[in-house]
Design a binder for these strands. Structure first.
Lengths: 235, 235
DNA sequence: TCAAAAAATGACCATTAGTCAGTTATGGGA
DNA sequence: TCCCATAACTGACTAATGGTCATTTTTTGA
Protein backbone atom coordinates (compact mmCIF):
# COMPACT_ATOMS: atom_id res chain seq x y z
CA UNK A 1 0.00 0.00 0.00
CA UNK A 2 2.44 2.62 1.19
CA UNK A 3 -0.42 4.81 2.34
CA UNK A 4 1.11 5.52 5.69
CA UNK A 5 4.40 6.39 4.02
CA UNK A 6 2.69 8.77 1.65
CA UNK A 7 0.82 10.35 4.53
CA UNK A 8 4.06 10.74 6.39
CA UNK A 9 5.58 12.56 3.43
CA UNK A 10 2.53 14.78 3.10
CA UNK A 11 2.66 15.55 6.77
CA UNK A 12 6.30 16.56 6.54
CA UNK A 13 5.49 18.71 3.54
CA UNK A 14 2.68 20.50 5.35
CA UNK A 15 4.95 21.01 8.32
CA UNK A 16 7.52 22.63 6.08
CA UNK A 17 4.89 24.98 4.66
CA UNK A 18 3.91 26.03 8.15
CA UNK A 19 7.56 26.56 9.08
CA UNK A 20 8.02 28.75 6.03
CA UNK A 21 5.00 30.82 6.99
CA UNK A 22 6.47 31.25 10.47
CA UNK A 23 9.84 32.25 9.04
CA UNK A 24 8.19 34.93 6.96
CA UNK A 25 6.45 36.33 10.01
CA UNK A 26 9.73 36.36 11.93
CA UNK A 27 11.48 38.16 9.09
CA UNK A 28 8.70 40.73 8.89
CA UNK A 29 7.95 41.40 12.55
CA UNK A 30 10.68 39.77 14.58
CA UNK A 31 10.59 36.69 16.74
CA UNK A 32 9.07 38.51 19.71
CA UNK A 33 5.87 39.38 17.92
CA UNK A 34 5.42 36.00 16.30
CA UNK A 35 1.93 34.82 17.07
CA UNK A 36 0.21 31.60 16.23
CA UNK A 37 -2.94 33.14 14.75
CA UNK A 38 -0.88 35.00 12.20
CA UNK A 39 1.18 31.93 11.30
CA UNK A 40 -2.03 29.97 10.83
CA UNK A 41 -3.45 32.72 8.63
CA UNK A 42 -0.29 32.96 6.55
CA UNK A 43 -0.05 29.17 6.18
CA UNK A 44 -3.74 29.10 5.21
CA UNK A 45 -4.67 26.57 7.85
CA UNK A 46 -6.64 26.82 11.03
CA UNK A 47 -5.01 27.34 14.37
CA UNK A 48 -6.11 23.87 15.39
CA UNK A 49 -4.25 22.35 12.46
CA UNK A 50 -1.11 24.20 13.41
CA UNK A 51 -1.30 22.56 16.81
CA UNK A 52 -1.75 19.16 15.19
CA UNK A 53 1.68 19.56 13.62
CA UNK A 54 3.51 21.34 16.43
CA UNK A 55 3.17 20.75 20.15
CA UNK A 56 3.27 24.42 20.99
CA UNK A 57 4.81 27.72 19.97
CA UNK A 58 8.26 26.79 21.24
CA UNK A 59 8.13 23.62 19.20
CA UNK A 60 7.35 25.65 16.10
CA UNK A 61 10.32 27.96 16.64
CA UNK A 62 12.56 24.99 17.40
CA UNK A 63 11.38 23.55 14.10
CA UNK A 64 12.93 26.60 12.46
CA UNK A 65 16.00 26.21 14.64
CA UNK A 66 16.24 22.66 13.39
CA UNK A 67 16.31 23.83 9.78
CA UNK A 68 18.89 26.42 10.78
CA UNK A 69 21.24 24.02 12.53
CA UNK A 70 20.90 21.49 9.73
CA UNK A 71 21.87 24.10 7.17
CA UNK A 72 24.73 25.50 9.23
CA UNK A 73 26.03 22.05 10.01
CA UNK A 74 25.94 21.13 6.33
CA UNK A 75 27.92 24.25 5.40
CA UNK A 76 30.50 23.58 8.09
CA UNK A 77 30.89 19.94 7.19
CA UNK A 78 31.55 20.97 3.62
CA UNK A 79 34.53 23.00 4.82
CA UNK A 80 36.20 19.89 6.21
CA UNK A 81 36.27 18.28 2.76
CA UNK A 82 38.70 20.93 1.52
CA UNK A 83 42.38 20.11 1.23
CA UNK A 84 43.76 23.02 3.23
CA UNK A 85 45.93 23.56 6.31
CA UNK A 86 44.02 23.20 9.58
CA UNK A 87 44.36 26.86 10.46
CA UNK A 88 42.63 27.75 7.20
CA UNK A 89 39.85 25.28 7.93
CA UNK A 90 39.32 26.95 11.31
CA UNK A 91 39.25 30.26 9.50
CA UNK A 92 36.70 29.00 6.99
CA UNK A 93 34.47 27.49 9.65
CA UNK A 94 34.32 30.85 11.39
CA UNK A 95 33.70 32.68 8.12
CA UNK A 96 30.96 30.20 7.26
CA UNK A 97 29.21 30.86 10.56
CA UNK A 98 29.57 34.58 10.02
CA UNK A 99 28.02 34.63 6.57
CA UNK A 100 25.33 32.16 7.60
CA UNK A 101 24.09 34.58 10.25
CA UNK A 102 24.39 37.52 7.93
CA UNK A 103 22.33 35.80 5.27
CA UNK A 104 19.77 34.18 7.58
CA UNK A 105 19.17 36.47 10.54
CA UNK A 106 15.84 34.76 11.27
CA UNK A 107 17.64 31.43 11.61
CA UNK A 108 20.10 32.93 14.04
CA UNK A 109 17.17 34.30 16.04
CA UNK A 110 15.68 30.84 16.22
CA UNK A 111 19.03 29.44 17.37
CA UNK A 112 19.29 32.02 20.15
CA UNK A 113 15.74 31.18 21.11
CA UNK A 114 16.82 27.58 21.52
CA UNK A 115 19.76 28.65 23.67
CA UNK A 116 17.40 30.66 25.82
CA UNK A 117 15.05 27.75 26.29
CA UNK A 118 17.91 25.67 27.61
CA UNK A 119 17.54 27.63 30.84
CA UNK A 120 13.97 26.46 31.27
CA UNK A 121 12.31 23.10 31.71
CA UNK A 122 10.12 23.63 28.66
CA UNK A 123 12.53 22.01 26.23
CA UNK A 124 11.46 18.43 26.83
CA UNK A 125 8.12 18.76 25.06
CA UNK A 126 9.66 19.62 21.73
CA UNK A 127 10.41 16.99 19.13
CA UNK A 128 13.19 19.17 17.73
CA UNK A 129 15.32 19.82 20.77
CA UNK A 130 17.51 16.73 20.45
CA UNK A 131 17.97 17.19 16.74
CA UNK A 132 19.05 20.82 17.19
CA UNK A 133 21.49 19.83 19.88
CA UNK A 134 22.94 17.02 17.77
CA UNK A 135 23.40 19.31 14.79
CA UNK A 136 25.28 21.86 16.85
CA UNK A 137 27.40 19.19 18.50
CA UNK A 138 28.25 17.90 15.07
CA UNK A 139 29.32 21.36 13.93
CA UNK A 140 31.39 21.68 17.08
CA UNK A 141 33.08 18.38 16.30
CA UNK A 142 34.03 19.78 12.90
CA UNK A 143 35.86 22.55 14.73
CA UNK A 144 37.72 19.99 16.82
CA UNK A 145 38.65 18.08 13.66
CA UNK A 146 39.94 21.23 11.95
CA UNK A 147 42.11 21.94 14.97
CA UNK A 148 43.45 18.39 15.03
CA UNK A 149 44.28 18.64 11.33
CA UNK A 150 46.06 21.93 12.00
CA UNK A 151 48.09 20.42 14.80
CA UNK A 152 49.17 17.59 12.54
CA UNK A 153 50.12 19.75 9.58
CA UNK A 154 51.96 22.22 11.82
CA UNK A 155 49.69 25.19 11.22
CA UNK A 156 48.26 25.23 14.76
CA UNK A 157 50.23 25.26 17.97
CA UNK A 158 49.87 21.75 19.38
CA UNK A 159 50.50 22.71 22.99
CA UNK A 160 46.74 23.16 23.36
CA UNK A 161 44.26 20.39 24.04
CA UNK A 162 42.19 20.26 20.82
CA UNK A 163 38.79 20.10 22.44
CA UNK A 164 39.59 22.79 24.96
CA UNK A 165 40.83 25.03 22.19
CA UNK A 166 37.69 24.28 20.18
CA UNK A 167 35.61 25.46 23.10
CA UNK A 168 37.49 28.74 23.26
CA UNK A 169 37.13 29.28 19.53
CA UNK A 170 33.47 28.29 19.67
CA UNK A 171 32.72 30.75 22.44
CA UNK A 172 34.73 33.62 21.02
CA UNK A 173 33.43 33.20 17.49
CA UNK A 174 29.89 33.16 18.87
CA UNK A 175 30.73 36.45 20.51
CA UNK A 176 31.95 37.88 17.21
CA UNK A 177 29.01 36.58 15.26
CA UNK A 178 26.60 37.92 17.84
CA UNK A 179 28.11 41.37 17.63
CA UNK A 180 27.97 41.25 13.84
CA UNK A 181 24.32 40.18 14.04
CA UNK A 182 23.47 43.05 16.36
CA UNK A 183 25.27 45.53 14.19
CA UNK A 184 23.30 44.36 11.20
CA UNK A 185 19.89 43.90 12.79
CA UNK A 186 19.53 46.01 15.92
CA UNK A 187 18.65 49.64 15.37
CA UNK A 188 19.72 50.57 18.88
CA UNK A 189 23.09 48.86 18.85
CA UNK A 190 25.47 51.81 18.80
CA UNK A 191 28.83 50.37 19.79
CA UNK A 192 30.19 50.30 16.26
CA UNK A 193 28.37 53.36 15.00
CA UNK A 194 31.22 55.85 14.91
CA UNK A 195 33.43 53.49 12.89
CA UNK A 196 32.93 52.50 9.29
CA UNK A 197 32.47 48.78 9.71
CA UNK A 198 33.09 46.04 7.27
CA UNK A 199 32.00 42.87 8.98
CA UNK A 200 34.14 40.64 6.80
CA UNK A 201 37.30 42.47 7.69
CA UNK A 202 36.28 42.68 11.33
CA UNK A 203 36.23 38.91 11.25
CA UNK A 204 39.70 38.96 9.72
CA UNK A 205 40.76 41.06 12.69
CA UNK A 206 39.39 38.37 14.96
CA UNK A 207 41.31 35.68 13.09
CA UNK A 208 44.46 37.73 13.36
CA UNK A 209 43.85 38.16 17.08
CA UNK A 210 43.50 34.48 17.80
CA UNK A 211 46.25 33.76 15.32
CA UNK A 212 48.92 36.03 16.72
CA UNK A 213 47.60 37.15 20.07
CA UNK A 214 47.89 40.63 21.44
CA UNK A 215 50.95 40.37 23.63
CA UNK A 216 54.37 41.58 22.72
CA UNK A 217 57.05 38.92 22.40
CA UNK A 218 58.48 40.04 25.72
CA UNK A 219 55.16 39.25 27.42
CA UNK A 220 54.56 35.92 25.82
CA UNK A 221 57.05 33.98 27.87
CA UNK A 222 54.81 34.62 30.88
CA UNK A 223 52.10 32.39 29.49
CA UNK A 224 52.21 28.68 30.04
CA UNK A 225 50.26 25.89 28.44
CA UNK A 226 48.53 24.14 31.27
CA UNK A 227 45.03 22.87 30.70
CA UNK A 228 42.17 24.98 31.96
CA UNK A 229 40.05 21.98 32.73
CA UNK A 230 40.24 20.12 35.97
CA UNK A 231 41.59 16.65 35.49
CA UNK A 232 38.80 14.29 36.42
CA UNK A 233 40.85 11.25 37.22
CA UNK A 234 43.16 12.45 39.95
CA UNK A 235 42.86 12.65 43.72
CA UNK B 1 9.78 73.28 52.11
CA UNK B 2 11.61 70.51 50.30
CA UNK B 3 8.41 68.50 50.08
CA UNK B 4 8.87 67.70 46.41
CA UNK B 5 12.46 66.65 47.07
CA UNK B 6 11.37 64.34 49.84
CA UNK B 7 8.63 62.91 47.64
CA UNK B 8 11.18 62.37 44.92
CA UNK B 9 13.38 60.41 47.31
CA UNK B 10 10.42 58.37 48.52
CA UNK B 11 9.47 57.62 44.94
CA UNK B 12 12.96 56.39 44.15
CA UNK B 13 12.90 54.28 47.27
CA UNK B 14 9.59 52.68 46.34
CA UNK B 15 10.91 52.05 42.86
CA UNK B 16 13.90 50.26 44.32
CA UNK B 17 11.63 48.06 46.44
CA UNK B 18 9.65 47.09 43.36
CA UNK B 19 12.84 46.35 41.45
CA UNK B 20 14.01 44.13 44.28
CA UNK B 21 10.72 42.25 44.21
CA UNK B 22 11.12 41.75 40.47
CA UNK B 23 14.70 40.52 40.90
CA UNK B 24 13.51 37.95 43.40
CA UNK B 25 10.91 36.67 40.98
CA UNK B 26 13.51 36.44 38.20
CA UNK B 27 15.87 34.53 40.46
CA UNK B 28 13.09 32.13 41.47
CA UNK B 29 11.30 31.55 38.18
CA UNK B 30 13.47 33.01 35.46
CA UNK B 31 12.95 36.10 33.36
CA UNK B 32 10.54 34.38 30.97
CA UNK B 33 7.92 33.71 33.59
CA UNK B 34 8.18 37.10 35.24
CA UNK B 35 4.69 38.50 35.49
CA UNK B 36 3.48 41.83 36.72
CA UNK B 37 0.79 40.48 39.05
CA UNK B 38 3.38 38.49 40.93
CA UNK B 39 5.77 41.40 41.18
CA UNK B 40 2.95 43.58 42.52
CA UNK B 41 2.05 40.91 45.05
CA UNK B 42 5.64 40.46 46.18
CA UNK B 43 6.21 44.21 46.42
CA UNK B 44 2.95 44.49 48.38
CA UNK B 45 1.47 47.09 46.08
CA UNK B 46 -1.34 46.98 43.57
CA UNK B 47 -0.73 46.40 39.91
CA UNK B 48 -1.88 49.95 39.24
CA UNK B 49 0.84 51.33 41.49
CA UNK B 50 3.47 49.29 39.70
CA UNK B 51 2.43 50.95 36.47
CA UNK B 52 2.65 54.37 38.11
CA UNK B 53 6.36 53.74 38.68
CA UNK B 54 7.21 51.87 35.49
CA UNK B 55 5.90 52.53 32.01
CA UNK B 56 5.54 48.84 31.20
CA UNK B 57 7.06 45.45 31.79
CA UNK B 58 10.07 46.16 29.60
CA UNK B 59 10.73 49.32 31.54
CA UNK B 60 10.74 47.32 34.77
CA UNK B 61 13.28 44.82 33.42
CA UNK B 62 15.40 47.65 32.04
CA UNK B 63 15.28 49.14 35.53
CA UNK B 64 17.03 45.98 36.69
CA UNK B 65 19.38 46.18 33.72
CA UNK B 66 20.20 49.71 34.80
CA UNK B 67 21.22 48.51 38.26
CA UNK B 68 23.23 45.75 36.60
CA UNK B 69 25.13 48.01 34.24
CA UNK B 70 25.79 50.55 36.99
CA UNK B 71 27.26 47.86 39.19
CA UNK B 72 29.32 46.28 36.41
CA UNK B 73 30.56 49.65 35.27
CA UNK B 74 31.57 50.54 38.81
CA UNK B 75 33.54 47.30 39.17
CA UNK B 76 35.29 47.83 35.85
CA UNK B 77 36.15 51.42 36.57
CA UNK B 78 37.73 50.33 39.82
CA UNK B 79 40.12 48.12 37.83
CA UNK B 80 41.51 51.12 35.99
CA UNK B 81 42.65 52.71 39.26
CA UNK B 82 45.15 49.90 39.81
CA UNK B 83 48.81 50.48 39.05
CA UNK B 84 49.39 47.52 36.75
CA UNK B 85 50.57 46.85 33.19
CA UNK B 86 47.85 47.38 30.60
CA UNK B 87 47.69 43.70 29.69
CA UNK B 88 46.90 42.90 33.31
CA UNK B 89 44.20 45.56 33.36
CA UNK B 90 42.61 43.93 30.30
CA UNK B 91 42.83 40.62 32.09
CA UNK B 92 41.19 42.02 35.20
CA UNK B 93 38.40 43.70 33.26
CA UNK B 94 37.55 40.36 31.69
CA UNK B 95 37.77 38.54 35.00
CA UNK B 96 35.55 41.19 36.58
CA UNK B 97 32.90 40.67 33.92
CA UNK B 98 33.17 36.93 34.37
CA UNK B 99 32.64 36.95 38.12
CA UNK B 100 29.95 39.60 37.87
CA UNK B 101 27.86 37.28 35.71
CA UNK B 102 28.61 34.30 37.88
CA UNK B 103 27.49 36.14 41.01
CA UNK B 104 24.50 37.95 39.50
CA UNK B 105 22.92 35.73 36.86
CA UNK B 106 19.65 37.63 37.10
CA UNK B 107 21.48 40.85 36.22
CA UNK B 108 23.04 39.20 33.20
CA UNK B 109 19.59 38.04 32.12
CA UNK B 110 18.33 41.60 32.34
CA UNK B 111 21.30 42.79 30.27
CA UNK B 112 20.59 40.22 27.58
CA UNK B 113 16.96 41.30 27.64
CA UNK B 114 18.12 44.82 26.90
CA UNK B 115 20.27 43.57 24.02
CA UNK B 116 17.27 41.75 22.64
CA UNK B 117 15.07 44.82 22.84
CA UNK B 118 17.58 46.72 20.73
CA UNK B 119 16.19 44.82 17.76
CA UNK B 120 12.72 46.22 18.35
CA UNK B 121 11.24 49.68 18.37
CA UNK B 122 9.97 49.27 21.91
CA UNK B 123 13.05 50.71 23.55
CA UNK B 124 12.12 54.35 23.25
CA UNK B 125 9.39 54.22 25.89
CA UNK B 126 11.73 53.23 28.66
CA UNK B 127 13.36 55.78 30.92
CA UNK B 128 16.27 53.44 31.50
CA UNK B 129 17.42 52.67 27.98
CA UNK B 130 19.79 55.60 27.62
CA UNK B 131 21.25 55.08 31.05
CA UNK B 132 21.93 51.39 30.35
CA UNK B 133 23.56 52.24 27.07
CA UNK B 134 25.74 54.94 28.65
CA UNK B 135 26.87 52.60 31.39
CA UNK B 136 27.92 49.94 28.91
CA UNK B 137 29.65 52.49 26.70
CA UNK B 138 31.51 53.68 29.74
CA UNK B 139 32.63 50.15 30.56
CA UNK B 140 33.73 49.73 26.96
CA UNK B 141 35.76 52.92 27.19
CA UNK B 142 37.55 51.43 30.20
CA UNK B 143 38.61 48.56 27.95
CA UNK B 144 39.96 51.02 25.39
CA UNK B 145 41.87 52.84 28.15
CA UNK B 146 43.38 49.62 29.45
CA UNK B 147 44.55 48.79 25.94
CA UNK B 148 46.06 52.24 25.47
CA UNK B 149 47.86 51.91 28.78
CA UNK B 150 49.17 48.53 27.68
CA UNK B 151 50.44 49.96 24.40
CA UNK B 152 52.27 52.68 26.24
CA UNK B 153 53.87 50.45 28.82
CA UNK B 154 54.84 47.89 26.19
CA UNK B 155 52.66 45.04 27.42
CA UNK B 156 50.30 45.13 24.43
CA UNK B 157 51.26 45.01 20.79
CA UNK B 158 50.73 48.55 19.52
CA UNK B 159 50.26 47.58 15.89
CA UNK B 160 46.52 47.35 16.58
CA UNK B 161 44.13 50.26 16.60
CA UNK B 162 43.10 50.50 20.29
CA UNK B 163 39.39 50.88 19.70
CA UNK B 164 39.26 48.17 17.07
CA UNK B 165 41.10 45.84 19.41
CA UNK B 166 38.72 46.78 22.21
CA UNK B 167 35.80 45.75 20.01
CA UNK B 168 37.38 42.36 19.37
CA UNK B 169 38.05 41.82 23.07
CA UNK B 170 34.57 43.04 23.96
CA UNK B 171 32.91 40.65 21.54
CA UNK B 172 35.06 37.64 22.35
CA UNK B 173 34.83 38.11 26.11
CA UNK B 174 31.05 38.39 25.77
CA UNK B 175 31.18 35.06 24.01
CA UNK B 176 33.21 33.53 26.83
CA UNK B 177 31.02 35.00 29.53
CA UNK B 178 27.90 33.85 27.75
CA UNK B 179 29.19 30.30 27.56
CA UNK B 180 30.13 30.40 31.24
CA UNK B 181 26.66 31.69 32.06
CA UNK B 182 25.02 28.91 30.11
CA UNK B 183 27.18 26.29 31.71
CA UNK B 184 26.22 27.58 35.13
CA UNK B 185 22.53 28.28 34.55
CA UNK B 186 21.18 26.20 31.67
CA UNK B 187 20.27 22.62 32.50
CA UNK B 188 20.24 21.67 28.84
CA UNK B 189 23.57 23.17 27.89
CA UNK B 190 25.68 20.08 27.27
CA UNK B 191 28.71 21.30 25.36
CA UNK B 192 31.02 21.26 28.36
CA UNK B 193 29.43 18.30 30.11
CA UNK B 194 32.01 15.63 29.41
CA UNK B 195 34.84 17.81 30.70
CA UNK B 196 35.44 18.83 34.28
CA UNK B 197 35.13 22.56 33.96
CA UNK B 198 36.60 25.24 36.12
CA UNK B 199 35.26 28.50 34.76
CA UNK B 200 38.06 30.57 36.21
CA UNK B 201 40.73 28.55 34.49
CA UNK B 202 38.69 28.42 31.27
CA UNK B 203 38.91 32.19 31.35
CA UNK B 204 42.67 31.91 31.83
CA UNK B 205 42.70 29.76 28.70
CA UNK B 206 40.92 32.56 26.88
CA UNK B 207 43.45 35.10 28.11
CA UNK B 208 46.26 32.88 26.97
CA UNK B 209 44.60 32.51 23.59
CA UNK B 210 44.30 36.22 22.94
CA UNK B 211 47.68 36.73 24.53
CA UNK B 212 49.67 34.29 22.44
CA UNK B 213 47.39 33.29 19.62
CA UNK B 214 47.08 29.81 18.26
CA UNK B 215 49.40 29.88 15.29
CA UNK B 216 52.87 28.44 15.20
CA UNK B 217 55.68 30.94 14.74
CA UNK B 218 56.04 29.78 11.17
CA UNK B 219 52.43 30.78 10.44
CA UNK B 220 52.50 34.15 12.11
CA UNK B 221 54.42 35.95 9.42
CA UNK B 222 51.38 35.48 7.18
CA UNK B 223 49.31 37.87 9.24
CA UNK B 224 49.50 41.57 8.65
CA UNK B 225 48.25 44.45 10.74
CA UNK B 226 45.92 46.35 8.50
CA UNK B 227 42.81 47.83 10.04
CA UNK B 228 39.60 45.87 9.66
CA UNK B 229 37.53 49.00 9.45
CA UNK B 230 36.91 50.85 6.26
CA UNK B 231 38.58 54.20 6.31
CA UNK B 232 35.78 56.76 6.20
CA UNK B 233 37.67 59.67 4.71
CA UNK B 234 38.93 58.25 1.44
CA UNK B 235 37.50 58.07 -2.05
C1' DT C 1 -21.87 3.33 -1.52
C1' DC C 2 -20.77 3.62 3.21
C1' DA C 3 -18.83 3.54 7.76
C1' DA C 4 -14.72 4.09 10.40
C1' DA C 5 -10.53 6.67 10.90
C1' DA C 6 -7.90 10.79 10.16
C1' DA C 7 -7.57 15.57 9.54
C1' DA C 8 -9.27 20.19 9.89
C1' DT C 9 -11.88 23.76 12.04
C1' DG C 10 -12.87 27.86 14.88
C1' DA C 11 -15.41 28.96 18.98
C1' DC C 12 -13.93 28.85 23.40
C1' DC C 13 -10.89 29.06 27.76
C1' DA C 14 -7.02 30.77 30.65
C1' DT C 15 -3.39 33.76 31.36
C1' DT C 16 -1.46 38.13 31.57
C1' DA C 17 -0.02 43.02 29.98
C1' DG C 18 -1.91 47.22 30.43
C1' DT C 19 -5.99 50.80 31.66
C1' DC C 20 -8.93 53.75 34.21
C1' DA C 21 -12.82 55.30 37.02
C1' DG C 22 -13.32 55.48 41.61
C1' DT C 23 -11.21 55.67 46.38
C1' DT C 24 -7.91 56.95 49.86
C1' DA C 25 -4.04 59.63 51.70
C1' DT C 26 -1.44 63.93 51.96
C1' DG C 27 -0.39 68.76 52.60
C1' DG C 28 -1.18 73.47 53.11
C1' DG C 29 -4.34 77.34 53.87
C1' DA C 30 -8.22 79.31 56.55
C1' DT D 1 -9.18 71.61 63.49
C1' DC D 2 -11.51 71.52 59.22
C1' DC D 3 -11.48 71.50 54.23
C1' DC D 4 -10.30 70.87 49.67
C1' DA D 5 -7.08 70.24 45.89
C1' DT D 6 -3.68 67.28 44.50
C1' DA D 7 -1.23 63.08 44.45
C1' DA D 8 -1.12 58.27 45.18
C1' DC D 9 -3.34 53.94 45.19
C1' DT D 10 -6.57 50.32 43.95
C1' DG D 11 -8.50 46.29 41.58
C1' DA D 12 -12.06 45.27 38.31
C1' DC D 13 -11.90 45.48 33.55
C1' DT D 14 -10.21 45.07 28.45
C1' DA D 15 -7.41 43.20 24.79
C1' DA D 16 -4.26 40.07 23.03
C1' DT D 17 -2.77 35.59 22.54
C1' DG D 18 -1.29 30.64 23.65
C1' DG D 19 -3.58 26.53 23.78
C1' DT D 20 -7.97 23.13 23.75
C1' DC D 21 -11.68 20.40 22.11
C1' DA D 22 -16.33 19.15 20.42
C1' DT D 23 -17.89 19.17 15.94
C1' DT D 24 -17.49 18.93 10.94
C1' DT D 25 -15.17 17.55 6.77
C1' DT D 26 -12.20 14.55 4.19
C1' DT D 27 -10.02 10.29 3.25
C1' DT D 28 -9.66 5.41 3.13
C1' DG D 29 -10.65 0.66 2.16
C1' DA D 30 -14.11 -2.77 1.72
Amino acid sequence: MGVTERKEREKEFKKSLMLEAAEEVILEKGLDSLNMDEVALKAEVSKGSLYQYFNNKNDLVLGICNKATLLLNEDIQKVLTKDLPGIDLVHMIGATFMSFVSEHPEYFRAMRFHDNLKETAQLEDSTYHHSCRDNMENAFTCMVRAIQIGMQDGSINSSYNPKELAILLWATSHGMVNMAYQHQNAQHFNLLDDLGINLKSMFEGYMKLIGCGIATDEQKKNYDSQSFFEKNGNA
